[in-house]
Amino acid sequence: MNIFRLTGDLSHLLAILILLWKIWKTRSCSGISGRSQILFATVYTARYLDLFTNFVSVYNSVMKIIFIAAAFATLYLIYVKFKATYDRNHDTFRIEFLLAPCALLALILNHEFTILEVLWTFSIYLESVAILPQLFLVSKTGEAETITSHYLFALGSYRALYLLNWIYRYYFEGFFDLIAIVAGIVQTVLYCDFFYLYITRVIKGRALKLPA
């Protein structure tokens, strides 16, 4: 464990808790893409199946349980409890165009052709594009609530911090996972224009409005 990975995990946890808190407090999931949350729940389920087979540490297991539980709790809030506030008309990104290519790529480009490894690879590829429906929704509505932009900032920062973690681990531990690194770069790059808007607007107290 290193400071980059720890702050990355905490940033990830913060993002997930901000989202749950926003929906619960405002009793509304307006501006939130349910489709992205479906993809995240798929990512965690596919990636954390090893939760019961190989124990890494208490921290690792506890975080995996929290991420899976929070992902499904968010889906419940969006599609059951507050479904009247779900923005069905704007949340229209075709996620099958993300799921199929990621599944195909995971079958072709992986470290080892076993069930767990292919599912892990699928989750890595899927996570790198899982935010697209959410960014698409924000671009369609042209704005995002401030709390939603904080959620996106924390979520985008987590994988950026993981990139630093991989640089650190490469030099100090000789750890190198090209699949995770390339997908992590793609994932972080997708947030760049959002990061720019967040830094130039939200930090200065203005609402996140995309230039029309």
Binding site: D50, N54, V56, W120, N165
Partner: peptide, 10 residues
């Protein structure tokens, strides 16, 4: 075959 990468990250 590549060295097995231990999956210790989230």
């Amino acid at each position: 075959p590549e060295t097995k990468i231990i999956k210790d990250e989230l």
